[in-house]
Design a protein around this nucleic acid. Structure first.
Lengths: 241, 241
DNA sequence: CTTTCTTTGTGAAATGAATCACAATGTGAA
DNA sequence: TTCACATTGTGATTCATTTCACAAAGAAAG
């Protein structure tokens, strides 16, 4: 074989394809894991019992969130929040600081596509939800479902998606349709202005840059858990040699 | 302040606490991300249309799975699967090879706790499922639900959890109870022999080493998506300066 | 006031994962 | 047969994230 040029000459260098994700983050924008941890911290702090002290140490928050003290301190550092030695972090201020990072000042609306079993469960899950981030519209093709209001959320026919999403300035889409329709529905939402997608369909979405997709692949998670249930240190169970 | 010993003398060095996860993997055991990708590869290959060619190139599988060709090759390398230059990977053999890695030879059973909206949706989701990994029992405290069969799955009272889990050799637990009961239910399952947990409750589980927990935190995922919907390159939308 | 203790904030180091880049391999065409 | 080419397999490298480890900062006790 002969020595070759940098491998590909006409093909672009191997990238995650022109596909969505937080791949190339703008400077000052946090990483996905980072945002997820902040979200968890906030909820844990909000769920605190009434009598609890108004401050918390990094190692206590770490214990609550299954993290480490160093991780917590680093996370808070990057959002510019500071505590005091020997007293820890002020909980009320911390909740507020995380909110400034995570929440849209004017609030954000989400739309859900596919009012099946899972869709209805999620609507229910998010009914009691702060105004900061709410599912404000649902869509389905089934005329038996459209026009009704399920868990306080109106169900529109899919044909009205573009109009409703635009009118309400919806920026987040939750996809709970069957795998076969997921890509089509996602593209409709994208065209209507939705930028962030939470995809429960068991197939990856292919969207251009400028869209962010989080795959919630229940089947894959289940298989992952099953794998580690067998392969964890000290797990001889269920395994046939 | 005075120079100090290695920081902590009696406290153990900061670790993710004696808490579950794939933290310290045994040698030869794959990483979580790795397993997740293999699971996705397999499903994509299985879902292939009938007329498709019996082989596939790494870059084609990468495109399907939102990955890169190099990543795919590396993944298959670590499970010891090889293709042929200029012809790619044999799909049928690859599906089988992934199965040898992911599946328990004798199959694995899962139990679901909490037959609410979300629990029922998941039971439905997993009804048509291969024998390799199935939800074989559900549990709930509500006597209106126990004794019935929902989506082909029998619902037992929580009191029978230990007996049923032991009798059926169940190794995976799916938690869809309210946050307040999640920890208790997880501990019951752990005591009965469950090693892997898929936790949909909006609070992290605290289990000792020897248990693996995958958090399926829908609220956090939603907040993450919302954040990136606003902060993605070229996303001025929904943001108020 | 001084000492002792625990905690924060953060460079530096370590770990882990993804990507690069290229020799080796096989295919099909001439 | 030989050539040209696209692809695999993989060491080396880069990049991202986590962890370490310690100076600085209070607080509380003496």
């Amino acid at each position: 074989m002969k020595p070759k040029q940098p491998t590909d000459l006409m093909a672009p260098p191997e990238r995650p394809a022109p596909v969505a994700g937080a791949a190339g983050r703008a400077p000052g924008v946090l990483s996905e894991k980072h945002v997820a941890r902040l979200s968890v911290y906030r909820r844990l702090l909000q769920d605190r019992p009434a009598g609890a002290p108004p401050e918390i140490y990094s190692h206590d928050l770490a214990a609550l969130s299954r993290s480490t003290a160093a991780q917590v301190r680093r996370d808070l550092m990057t959002i510019g929040f500071t505590g005091s030695p020997a007293r820890g972090y002020r909980i009320d201020q911390l909740i507020e600081a995380i909110g400034r990072t995570l929440d849209a000042p004017a609030g954000q609306g989400a739309a859900l596509c596919g009012v099946g079993n899972l869709g209805r469960a999620l609507l229910d899950y998010f009914t009691i939800w702060r105004p900061q981030l709410r599912i404000v519209a649902a869509f389905d093709t089934d005329t038996a479902k459209t026009g009704r209001v399920i868990h306080r959320c109106r169900v529109y026919p899919l044909a009205e998606l573009e109009a409703v999403v635009r009118a309400q300035g919806i920026s987040v889409g939750v996809i709970t349709v069957p795998a076969a329709s997921a890509q089509r529905v996602a593209e409709m939402m994208l065209a209507a202005g939705v930028r962030g997608f939470l995809n429960f369909a068991p197939t990856p979405l292919h969207l251009p840059d400028g869209a962010y997709v989080e795959e919630m692949d229940i089947t894959t998670s289940m298989e992952t858990v099953a794998y580690f249930a067998r392969h964890l240190p000290g797990a001889a169970a269920t395994e046939k040699p």
